[in-house]
Each structure stands twice: as structure tokens, then as C-alpha cells.
């Protein structure tokens, strides 16, 4: 285990040298992720880890990728996707075009899930999905759209539980141990690096999806990000969070009303 003081030292190094600001991330999470990396990469001492980070920009990429959590799945929490399908997309469908932002999309599994929902609702061609993450390498994986074939059984079950009625395998072609999702889905996606800590609003959206990202931030940073989202949403736009995340305790909560039981809020003014 790495001492708390050393976590602070590393976080400061990374900010000063590379501009990545982790100072308002959850301390407990940083500690666990840095300790995990320290063990994985078999550093003999904290000083060696610090030296590597300060002097090897290539290793910095690995550091950022391992410190941020990139665990995701397609149609995670199927009841959430069922609510999107039945309650939210019909509303969005009344607009001439639909702009969606997936903030912190990681390797893109949920972005592809969204594209499939849009396609089945007949809305994909008038939609643009902006998919962003702090980490350019995971975004590249998302853009390519190749996922392990071993996960398809779970994803297919999730898809059906989310109200999907087609053969899930019709959306991809299998190749050895990976499957590649159809280009018609990717066509409406725009991938770009965006850091929720330091980058600002870049458009106005009808739906922002940010699931299981805020849990890695401390309260102050969570609130800043809520304000960024608020600035990036038009009236009556939707904000969708992870199953254990809430707008309730944030400074923007007065202007948001929860839609049904899922973690989806609608901006009221």
C-alpha cells in the first residue's frame, strides 16, 4: 500500500508535468488504483514509480489509463436502457435532430448500446453521439468498435432484457476472438478527448449520459461537473447517470426532475 502523502506527491507531479488534474478525485479510489498499479508493474519502491512517471511520458499514458477505471459493459443495467427506449427516445424523436453526449465513455460499450437503441427507434440517422473520455487510447478502442467475443453472451442477455427484439448478433461480425460492430452504428459517432475536470462545455445537448464516472470524484468536483452538464443542456434536455448516482445533493437539483425510477433527470428550466 502506498502512503497518503505519496499519493499527494504523485498527483502533484502529474499535474505539474503533464496537466492532468487528479486533485479532486476520490482519495480512496486514487489510493487503491495507484497501489494496484504499483503491484501490477512490480515497482521495488515508491521512488522508482515516481521516477518512471516523471521521466517516461509513455508510462504516463499507462498511469492515466490504469488510474481511471475503464470497466464497462453493453446495456449495463438493462432496466435503464428499457426506460431510455420506452420513455426518453420517443420524446427525443420529436426533434428535427438529436445531439447526445456520452461523457467518460471509456471503451464505448454503452455508446454502441445507445446507437442500437436509436437505430431500432428509427432515429439513428438524425442523431449525433459525441463520445468523450479523458483517455485517448480507450477512445481509439471505442472508435474501432471491436469487443471480446466472450462478452457477447452477457451483452445479448442484457440486450433482450432492455427490450431488444432482434437477433443481437446481427449487429456485429465475429472474427476470431473479437466481434466488430456494424459501421452504420459508428457513422453517427464523434469521438474526442475531453477532460471533465479542465475542459468546458462544447455544445448543447438533448441528452447527456455519464454513468459511473462521478463516483470517482470528490463532492466538489462532482458539483463542478454537474454545472458543466447544466451549461451543456437545453431546456427539457435529459441527464442520465449510473444506478447509484444522483443529482439530488448537487447545486443544480432544483431545476431537474427525475423521470420514473431510473437515474434519469429532465431539466425543467
Amino acid at each position: 500500500m502506498i502512503e497518503d502523502e505519496n499519493i499527494d506527491i504523485l498527483v502533484n507531479d502529474v499535474f505539474e508535468l503533464y496537466g492532468y488534474d487528479f486533485t479532486e478525485y476520490s482519495k480512496a479510489s486514487l489510493k487503491r488504483r495507484i497501489s494496484r498499479l504499483y503491484t501490477l508493474d512490480k515497482f521495488p519502491s515508491f521512488a522508482e514509480l515516481r521516477y518512471k512517471i516523471k521521466n517516461d511520458p509513455g508510462y504516463l499514458k499507462r498511469f492515466v489509463e490504469e488510474i481511471t477505471v475503464n470497466v464497462t459493459e453493453m446495456f449495463r443495467d438493462p432496466s435503464f436502457y428499457l426506460a431510455l427506449r420506452n420513455e426518453i427516445l420517443p420524446k427525443l424523436g420529436t426533434y428535427p435532430y438529436i445531439r447526445i453526449w456520452h461523457a467518460g465513455c471509456s471503451t464505448g460499450e454503452e455508446v454502441y448500446s445507445m446507437a442500437i437503441l436509436l437505430k431500432e427507434a428509427g432515429l439513428l440517422s438524425k442523431s449525433i453521439i459525441y463520445a468523450t473520455d479523458i483517455n485517448p487510447d480507450v477512445l481509439e478502442k471505442a472508435r474501432v468498435g471491436i469487443f471480446p467475443i466472450a462478452n457477447m453472451k452477457l451483452y445479448s442477455e442484457n440486450y433482450i432484457a432492455s427490450g431488444g427484439r432482434l437477433d443481437f448478433s446481427s449487429y456485429y461480425s465475429a472474427n476470431y476472438d473479437g466481434v466488430k460492430f456494424d459501421e452504420s452504428l459508428t457513422k453517427q459517432m464523434v469521438f474526442s478527448a475531453h477532460n471533465l475536470v479542465s475542459d468546458g462545455s462544447f455544445n448543447e445537448f438533448h441528452l447527456i449520459v455519464c454513468r459511473n464516472v462521478l463516483i470517482y470524484f470528490d463532492k466538489q468536483l462532482q458539483d463542478k461537473v454537474f454545472q458543466l452538464f447544466d451549461k451543456s443542456m437545453g431546456k427539457l434536455a435529459y441527464l442520465a447517470l449510473g444506478s447509484k448516482e444522483t443529482v439530488k445533493f448537487s447545486s443544480i437539483h432544483l431545476h431537474y426532475k427525475q423521470v420514473g425510477k431510473e437515474k434519469i433527470w429532465r431539466k425543467t428550466e
Partner: peptide, 21 residues
């Protein structure tokens, strides 16, 4: 602890949820 999340203890008495491996 909720299903499907790890729990982590912060220095200030709070608990964080974590959806890592």
C-alpha cells in the same frame, strides 16, 4: 454495500462506490 459496486472508505468519514474490476 450495494450489489455490483466495491466500497472504499475515504479519510473524511465518507464512503465511495467503485465499479472497477
Amino acid at each position: 454495500a450495494p450489489p455490483d459496486y466495491h466500497i472504499l472508505f475515504e479519510n473524511n468519514g465518507a464512503v465511495s462506490l467503485d465499479f472497477s474490476e
